[in-house]
Design a protein around this nucleic acid. Sequence first.
DNA 1: CTGTTAGCGCGTTCAT
DNA 2: ATGAACGCGCTAACAG
Lengths: 334, 334
Amino acid sequence: MTAVPPHPTSADVARRAGVSRATVSYVLNNADHAISEETRSRVLAAARELQYAPNASARSLRAGRSNIVLVPVPEAPSTPGVDTVIGHLDGELTKRGLRMLLHGDRTAAGIQGARAWAELRPAAVYLNVRRGTRPAVALLRRAGVQAVLLGGVPTVPYAPCVPLDETAVGRVATRHLLDRGHRRLACLVPRGLPAAFAERRFRAVVETAQAEGASVERVDCDLTTDSLAAAVSRWRDPVRRPDAVYAHNDEFAIALIHTLHETGLDVPRDVAVIGSGNRPLGALLRPTLSTAHFVVPDIARVIASSIRRLLDGQGLDPDVATAVQPRLVLRESA
Amino acid sequence: MTAVPPHPTSADVARRAGVSRATVSYVLNNADHAISEETRSRVLAAARELQYAPNASARSLRAGRSNIVLVPVPEAPSTPGVDTVIGHLDGELTKRGLRMLLHGDRTAAGIQGARAWAELRPAAVYLNVRRGTRPAVALLRRAGVQAVLLGGVPTVPYAPCVPLDETAVGRVATRHLLDRGHRRLACLVPRGLPAAFAERRFRAVVETAQAEGASVERVDCDLTTDSLAAAVSRWRDPVRRPDAVYAHNDEFAIALIHTLHETGLDVPRDVAVIGSGNRPLGALLRPTLSTAHFVVPDIARVIASSIRRLLDGQGLDPDVATAVQPRLVLRESA
DNA sequence: CTGTTAGCGCGTTCAT
DNA sequence: ATGAACGCGCTAACAG
């Protein structure tokens, strides 16, 4: 019996089983190649005894490809928590024989990022279009990444895109407020988040409102009592008070409703409020919160299936267009 | 000028620059070996033109190690959102010359998981002790992983541990309630989360309470109006009412306070309430919420520095013990 | 001092 | 069921 080596390789397994490395390889991952049951079990036993784990580097170096889908961790918190999307995405990818790997560096982007991502030679990369610039995509392709899928807007011509528009929740919510006849709107613009994030959402609200001739008061604020109270206090005067507020997300919506109540204003009678994200608390607190949100499981599914399809030489999953539409949940607050 | 190859390798760069592959390698990553400025810039130019990205597989295959810290994505949502920990951890690891990679499969654990993680031959692995069983750790070590750091409890003898005990927030919160003289406690046990998670927290509360001769009513519930209303309705009778409630987390605490108010009970006069997590909303809604929470940035820092130290042949960061202590934030609700 | 040759690391696969 | 070559980057040893 051979001594147990520190880092067992397929050669060690072969030695222990008394066969060649080729045989080991065939037994472990090529069901096609016929190997006698006898040898087969000897190899498996040896592998188990040595706690052999194949070296992914050597394997993908030889194969020239891997089953890795690389996902750079998003830079900013997006509407549905990163947790959720990631969790669902992983499950969907696993079903399709792919392994998700999240790349830690949140700041990597463009060419710099592409170099870092390309080093891992993944089969596919899914990333936000803002980080997936044209040269970045070109570099990834040249490095042998078979599928580069971009998420977000704008849709660009140089790579397939899942047009997941975070500002869409703002548009949908605003359209609802307009449908209810509100013409004097306000929009919270949180300072805590990366500025561009809140800013884009605000602009989407403004555009949607202006198309109907409605006005939008901009309210910069934090998720603190003082900040919101300052904003709300001037709304005690009915002349300066908006009909309805888009609160950016459900946390701010809940905080805003609370602050309005403390100021003596009623929701939705005096001011309607709508959020985004469909957090459970919104369904519970009174008045219950109307909200616009993405359907995370559906989005994860179409992303995963699109990646699978791209690897198989097909196009995007046709369900993408409908899956990325935000849903409106109407409750008491607006 | 050479034609532009599809997957440029160091050989292509060498050809284009008119030098050997060895020279390319020296220029790109061995500052020690002297190369003339002339050649040097030719190589760099060639690399840039070809958008050359080295192959991490080939590199780590040759080197026998990598600078990758592999972190299997946690199975369950833990007290501080996975997002937060991950974000901070990445920053801290980057500072120390390490690259964080998150492994997608949430279900992988034990020997099965270890095999999957070992394939990537990371320099280090950080994972929860529940998934890092003794054989799993052994397999990782045998595969050449230099540092295996476990998080969570219990502390085990076969690997270094960061004793990050999620139930500690429950203990600290409960101790506070006891200090305030409350002896009839209740504890919410959410059904939504993986059962074991809520269960463990509950048991910690019971143990802490019993040590002082206090009782704990168990309240299984969801984050819905009906569920909480059902639990709270019987508390209208002062005889059956607890003095104080540990609500598992801030969302449930907020929901509970809301439900208590609707039932006509005052917080903290009739019932005190305390949560966990220190969510911003808790500081804003009235009554403001007392809460116990982990200091995420500190935890991330000691994990990263411990990994670095383990790789350098030293022991855990001595600050670990203090960093994992939960903090108590006292406000109006308890 | 500058640059090249040669061989390694590990798993896969073709041809024998 | 096996020997041998291959994929790609690193580096010790060596030559000019």
